[in-house]
Design a protein around this nucleic acid. Sequence first.
DNA 1: CAAATACTGTTATATTTTTATCGATAAAAA
DNA 2: TTTTTATCGATAAAAATATAACAGTATTTG
Lengths: 211, 211
Amino acid sequence: MEQNGEMSKATLRRLPSYLRYLYSLGRQNVLTVSSTTIANGLGLNPVQVRKDIALVSSVAGKPKTGYVTKELIADLESFLGYHNTRDAVLVGAGGLGRAILGYDGFRNYGLNIMAAFDVNENVIGTEVNGKPVYAMDKLESVVKRFKIRIGIICVPSISAQSIADKMVEAGIKAIWCFAPVHLNLSPDIAVKGEDLAASLALLSMQLENRD
Amino acid sequence: MEQNGEMSKATLRRLPSYLRYLYSLGRQNVLTVSSTTIANGLGLNPVQVRKDIALVSSVAGKPKTGYVTKELIADLESFLGYHNTRDAVLVGAGGLGRAILGYDGFRNYGLNIMAAFDVNENVIGTEVNGKPVYAMDKLESVVKRFKIRIGIICVPSISAQSIADKMVEAGIKAIWCFAPVHLNLSPDIAVKGEDLAASLALLSMQLENRD
DNA sequence: CAAATACTGTTATATTTTTATCGATAAAAA
DNA sequence: TTTTTATCGATAAAAATATAACAGTATTTG
């Protein structure tokens, strides 16, 4: 069940929202759910929902009742890899970095932030939520020793590129960047920019264009 | 220039990335830029870039040289509404909430978080980055008094729905939710869920499917 | 037990989005 | 000055995505 390749990006973006929706049903003890219900809940087309489900799950929906909620949840979680555990490092233990370190929810998604790195002498050597903060020059050895492939960047924009370069040099293959800058990296590195401000601006723009 | 309506969601998602890329050129004093250059920098198709630009900007690209970087930046900023100022409130002054309150970069995007709200007696009455933290029961009056239409939710998942309901009741029209839950709201409320953990999981999944 | 219903899953169609092609043109090179 | 080159903008083609149509089937209802 775990292979990809022909899955569209749009589908991939919808999958986590199905899961969130199913969780909310699960809390209300809804045992089965139809594609129509999911579609209505999320503002999508039922056929689209059925097709997406067919791509990630082998559970057969039954006429008149739909899918078994629990089975669907299990298949989605498994497809999205929430059961595998993957290690990550974080650079920049400032406000946002500390907030992310403090968020235990990542564990439910199979993600484990092993350690953080910073240049600030005051935080080096401390722990945030049980995770050690090391000096920057330890980054390479930790990444190599534990074969870590995911890096999270929470440093100011000005330093983001150089941190990214250091990560790649150490062996990181996927970067999640919260600094609102364009990172110039080799195309075989997966980069996801999380420009929160731009994201919020987009939302508020959407709002204005409704009037 | 400021109207929407026929702009695709995909285009809308690309616009901020153009802007980030152009900023990075601007810092290097690059006066003009071609669609090909932008496309290569961002891994896109040049024709797509030209079309996107045509939708938001009236600047004419010149053969052999391309677009004037500064003009393009100005048009993108204006289209994305970074010059307008809009007020927002935030509920949940915990780790992530405080990080967001502490981020001054929002101002560059025309966003001003006016105040925060929380249930925790220890933070009520304090300030975070110059922004006051009020008790929850002040939410409605503040939102109404200042006609605020944007709400940011940084509370634990369990309380997210009830906070969202309170926001809508008070008059909020757009919600940016960091709790990884599905919010059940009337369709005329713009909701953007920012499921950070799912987002990171998707990135790391992408990584695995490259091998 | 037959008919109606509410589903699924698949195939077909429509729409949207992306990519390719091409004529026109300003700048650079010959 | 002429030719070449890099680019735009428009139109056409292709690919991807979303929607509609429909046949088949458990479940419920009369």
